[in-house]
Write a protein that binds this DNA or RNA. Sequence first.
DNA 1: CTGTTAGCGCGTTCAT
DNA 2: ATGAACGCGCTAACAG
Lengths: 342, 342
Amino acid sequence: MPDDIEQETRQRPPTIRDVAELAGVSKSLVSLVLRASPKVSDKSRVAVEEAIEELGYRPSAMARSLVNRHSGVGGIITSNAKDVFHADVVDGVSSYINEHAPGLVPLILHGNHEEEGEKLASRRFMEMRAEWLMFMGSALPDATLESLGRETPTALIGRWLESDSIDIVVNDDRAGAAMATKHLLDLGHRRIAHITGGRGNGARAREASFRRTMQEAGCESTVVEGTYLQQGGAEGARQLLGASGPLPTAIFAANDLAAIGAIDVLKRAGHRVPDDVSVVGYDDIPIAALAPIDLTTINQPARQMGQTAARLLCARRNNGSLKGQRVLLEPKLIVRSTTRAI
Amino acid sequence: MPDDIEQETRQRPPTIRDVAELAGVSKSLVSLVLRASPKVSDKSRVAVEEAIEELGYRPSAMARSLVNRHSGVGGIITSNAKDVFHADVVDGVSSYINEHAPGLVPLILHGNHEEEGEKLASRRFMEMRAEWLMFMGSALPDATLESLGRETPTALIGRWLESDSIDIVVNDDRAGAAMATKHLLDLGHRRIAHITGGRGNGARAREASFRRTMQEAGCESTVVEGTYLQQGGAEGARQLLGASGPLPTAIFAANDLAAIGAIDVLKRAGHRVPDDVSVVGYDDIPIAALAPIDLTTINQPARQMGQTAARLLCARRNNGSLKGQRVLLEPKLIVRSTTRAI
DNA sequence: CTGTTAGCGCGTTCAT
DNA sequence: ATGAACGCGCTAACAG
């Protein structure tokens, strides 16, 4: 029965011994061929290569790592798989690794936006003996991240943390939020509201910087709670619409998604943007540049952040240093058409 | 020097022997405790647990897999990390696995949109002895995917392939494209253009179905090349604007991103959507529903596709079957405000 | 210079 | 509750 035969084709994968036997040599010799050793005769090499081809042999990464004493994998943990920003950061990580540590495998595990998910992911990576951990944002408590940092080189992207056991790569949220706020102030706005990013990474820093900048300008701050999601921005806008007193003339939303959600609600309520209300976002995600949105925002250098984190981690892996570094990258104001002078 | 001491805290990770020694028992006993065996005295159990805690011991997944003869990992390969649709599919995969195969680790590797990257990713997963491979779209040639399917259970999502060695989960691109085209025809449009998705997965099927539906309605098809990206849609729209003869009254873009790019170009050129031109997309990505976009489109059940693929793969893993199945999921027309009757 | 033997790394399992 | 053997590929030492 052909079915049975086929079944057998997917038996246990062939081992180095099978190859050695078929090629009529010892397994040591096969190993030498695999690692392209120059001290193998052409005849043996060909015999081994043919055997490998015929059996469809693949070396076992597990067995190899066990003896090499290094896994050759790095662990990337995302707190929010759907965040386009994270995808860009990962891109930066890959590009750096491809160029500077091509043997390393940058594996990704999703934390599914929950503390429990990230904890599980980090445990799995530690059990795989990942050579480093990289968190794309994180819902984990500071202490957990720190203790991970004491076990293995760890980097945290997009969230600030007072610790010298891990590498931190963030954009300067304070500077960015100040830029956004000053932009609105410069345009003549005085009644400016901020929709926060809730417990999102960097959200509190953005809020604090907004308050401070407003205070320095002698303006009162209106702040409503939101999240880093569209719904959060929409909810924040609804709070502003529902409040007594006049609507603010400008809104600084904690990120682009929230800004888009807020604009949506404002428009549905009959307010024009930017004619009635100016709106600034944060992140400069790809869709922010699209004509129907064309959002004024703060650009975070996502790819560069990924490359930087990868560089720090690779450096620590090479020199065995435990000290984490903190890198603050400068965001940029991108003026588009959702803000105007009054 | 405190630095030296700290350095040493990150020495080689402790092994099961270290634990056994510290607890004053054999490593076999430690193994039993780890796997919660009932036949361990409380005294020993506590001693072992304390030793584990003190040393910060983590079992080695590699060593365990080597003897268990299964890796406990599944390999997910994405062709395009930035595709939000893929993120939803992965979400579906995770949710299925969490519920039905909680021991399995769904690792992700990005193919970086290139054949070479996917090939490398699949090789790495095979060397890790991943128990299955799941491709989120793919730039790999049919033959390569098929031969992978003969090595290990493999699923392909979002791309059709004539092969019974792998599982295929796609939305019905033909049905979806026909829905989109018929929607425009029903609205009274006759001069309808299609912007293709280039070599993107399913793009040719959408194009073919568009042509056929138009033909059946006795209309001539206008087709311009694009891609699945905003730039591709923009480029397609520019081709339409630059062509001699009247502009079509409706455009069916190969996916939402392309539709958004096309709308962008149309608006910048002074055309209103949907007043002058109706536009339909495909995919129903999250931003399509936002007020400033509010795109009429075809919904692909992304999460469901992920769950289905995970289910097929887990089933094959359990019963050892080699036969791949093909599942065609039904897309839905979502009417929003970028289309109107003429 | 080419190829082999023996033993290692880490956790599991089985007979004792 | 334990020692020995095992799984798979690598490597040091050794032999032809």
